[in-house]
Amino acid sequence: MKHISSLAAIVLALGAGSGATHAQEIKLKVADWLPLSHYTYSEGGKVFMDKATELSKGRIQFQHFPAEQLGKAKDAVALAQSGVAEIVNIAPAYITEKFPLSGVVELPGIYEGSCKGSYALAALAKPGGALDESEYKPNGVRVLFAGALGAYRVLTAKKPINGVADFAGLKLRTAGGPMDQTAALLGANSIRLPGPDVLASLSRGTLDGVFWPLQSVKPWGLEGALKYVTPNLSVGSFSMVYAISEKAWQKLPADLQRVLTEAGDLATKAHCEYVDRSEVKTIEALKAGGMVQIALPDNDVQKINQGYAKIHDDWAQALDKRGKPGTKVLEAFRQRVADGR
């Protein structure tokens, strides 16, 4: 009987140990508005998730829901706050009422490429940064991975842009925020649309063109709908972050919090370096596919760049008047871009 009792105790202990190991595995739902084909997912979001699973030795598992399966891009914060998903892909330009200050990343002419913008965004949006204190923390989310895309260009479906006067009256898709001001500076009409709606609008003719990063043309299937590109004019940029709800974060043990933080930093670096090194290849691929590049005259580019300074000041002052630290965030972002990582 003693032997039987001992054996039973061992079996129970092993069972308890197995249950404890199972309990340590944490599944996190990720609500993503991007399609699987988009490089910000493959070179950023997926890198983040794979690295977190690796660093946690499988204790962290993800359920990824791409292409707005759990909700629209504009509803990302609500999905996190309600617990529908623990991690969400937030595009501040689609939720400007909650993240107006994050629009600093979209201002034209402050930086080229992705890494300078991504590192500056990460520094300001992560815990303790100016954007975190003003926007992310009050909305109950914590930024893990930050991605600023490369410079947006102007691409049109039918009308070539040979000079600044050709922008007049064009209906151009923007991501909202500061890009609205950039479109106004050019004399075009800004049409706000999320990425998934753009192709249909181009096909119907309700859009004449887009403000768009070149690397995102093929992932969104737009190469057949756009014919002309202005390669020597930056009209701003766009950013997105993968953020975890603060409620979900507080439930995690400290070691897994560190894992998610490290994985996010690695993904930020991997994503921006991919974007920066692929710019030239992307341009050549689009050209080979039939897209026509028409550079603006240097005088026009210089005139537009001079107008960007006013856009920066107007953007900051408008936020200051609303009681938000627009000037402070603009200066901090500029300084981070100048400093590099």
Rank of each mutant, 00 (worst) to 15 (best):
T53D: 10
I87P: 00
G221Q: 10
G45Q: 08
Y152G: 00
G169I: 15
V259Q: 03
P297S: 10
N162T: 10
K251Q: 15
A309S: 06
A123S: 06
V301E: 03
G58W: 08
K74Q: 06
V105F: 01
E54N: 03
K159Q: 15
V84T: 14
A200Q: 10
A243W: 13
F333T: 11
P138W: 04
T230C: 04
D339Y: 00
D320H: 02
G45I: 10
H271P: 01
K251P: 05
L28R: 05
M240A: 04
S37T: 15
G224L: 06
I87H: 02
R153S: 04
L28P: 14
D276M: 00
D132E: 02
S118W: 06
H3K: 09
V30M: 12
E106M: 12
K74V: 01
K98P: 00
V275P: 03
H3V: 15
D255M: 09
V292T: 12
R142G: 02
P231N: 07
L260V: 03
V235I: 12
Y228P: 11
K227C: 12
R277A: 15
Q181F: 09
Y41Q: 12
R334S: 06
E54H: 06
V154L: 02
S118F: 01
L70R: 00
A168I: 06
K116H: 07
D265R: 03
L266W: 05
L12Q: 05
V141E: 00
V229H: 07
E97T: 04
D197W: 04
F167Q: 09
A85M: 08
S6F: 04
E262C: 06
P92Q: 05
K74N: 06
K310I: 02
V198N: 01
K247Y: 04
P66Q: 02
S18I: 13
P92V: 04
G15P: 04
E25P: 10
D197V: 13
A130P: 01
E54K: 09
G163M: 07
K116T: 08
G236M: 00
